[in-house]
Deep mutational scan, measured.
Amino acid sequence: MLSDEDFKAVFGMTRSAFANLPLWKQQNLKKEKGLF
């Protein structure tokens, strides 16, 4: 599990902003970052 700081560094957004994205968009971002 990423820390909040690492999460923001990897995804360029906060966890709450990420959580507001549609599920497909979350999955695409995870795949792009190799976290899926």
Rank of each mutant, 00 (worst) to 15 (best):
K33M: 08
D4W: 05
K31I: 13
L23R: 11
V10C: 05
G12Q: 05
Q26I: 02
D4I: 03
E5L: 11
P22Y: 02
Q27S: 09
F11S: 01
Q26P: 00
N20R: 12
S16Q: 14
M1V: 11
V10H: 12
R15P: 09
L29T: 03
K30V: 14
L35P: 07
K25Q: 14
N28K: 15
T14G: 06
D4H: 04
F7A: 00
S3F: 04
F11I: 04
D4S: 04
K31V: 11
L29H: 03
F11A: 02
Q27Y: 13
W24F: 06
F18N: 00
P22M: 03
K30R: 13
S3M: 04
A19V: 08
G34A: 06
G34T: 06
Q27P: 01
E5C: 06
K31P: 03
A19T: 08
D6Q: 13
M1D: 14
N28L: 15
A9W: 07
L23T: 08
K8F: 15
D6T: 07
G34E: 09
L35C: 15
K30S: 11
K8I: 13
N28H: 14
N20W: 04
D6N: 08
D4N: 05
A17H: 07
D4K: 02
E32K: 09
W24L: 07
Q26D: 00
L29E: 04
K31H: 12
A9S: 10
K30W: 15
N28Q: 15
P22D: 05
S3Y: 05
K8T: 09
Q26M: 02
A9C: 09
N20H: 10
K8Y: 15
G34K: 06
N28V: 14
G12N: 05
L29Y: 06
D4P: 05
D4F: 03
M1G: 12
S3P: 04
D6Y: 09
G34P: 04
E32Y: 07
Q26K: 05
R15E: 07
T14N: 06
K25Y: 10
F36N: 12
K31M: 10
L35S: 08
Q27H: 13
F18M: 03
K25G: 04
F11D: 01
L21Q: 03
N28D: 14
F18S: 00
M13Q: 02
S16C: 00
L35K: 09
F18L: 03
L29S: 02
A17I: 06
M13S: 01
R15N: 03
S3A: 06
L29K: 02
K30L: 15
W24I: 07
T14H: 03
M1A: 10
S16H: 11
L2R: 06
D6G: 08
F18Y: 06
R15A: 06
R15L: 07
A9L: 13
E5K: 08
R15V: 07
F18I: 02
P22V: 02
V10W: 11
V10I: 15
Q26V: 01
D4R: 02
A17L: 05
K33A: 12
D4Y: 03
T14M: 03
L23G: 07
N28R: 14
Q26N: 01
N20E: 15
N20Y: 05
G34M: 10
E32I: 11
F11H: 03
L2A: 04
P22F: 01
S3I: 04
M13V: 06
K31F: 11
D4M: 04
K31G: 07
L2I: 09
N20P: 00
E5T: 06
G34W: 06
F36Y: 11
R15G: 03
G34F: 08
Q27F: 11
S16Y: 10
M1E: 13
F36G: 13
Q27T: 11
A9N: 12
N20Q: 15
N28F: 13
G34S: 08
E5P: 05
M13N: 00
Q27L: 14
Q26L: 03
A17K: 06
E5Y: 07
E32Q: 12
D6E: 14
K33F: 08
F36V: 12
K8N: 10
G34V: 08
N28P: 01
L29F: 04
F36T: 13
L35V: 13
A17Q: 14
M13K: 01
K30G: 08
L23Q: 10
N20I: 08
N28Y: 14
K31D: 09
A17F: 05
S3L: 05
G12V: 00
T14A: 05
E5V: 07
T14K: 02
K8P: 03
K8D: 07
L21M: 06
E5R: 06
M1C: 13
E5W: 07
T14I: 04
L2H: 06
K25P: 01
K30H: 09
N28M: 15
L21P: 00
L2F: 10
A9E: 13
P22Q: 02
P22E: 05
A19R: 09
F36D: 13
K25T: 11
G12M: 02
N20F: 05
L23D: 10
L2V: 08
S16T: 13
A17M: 10
K30M: 15
L21W: 02
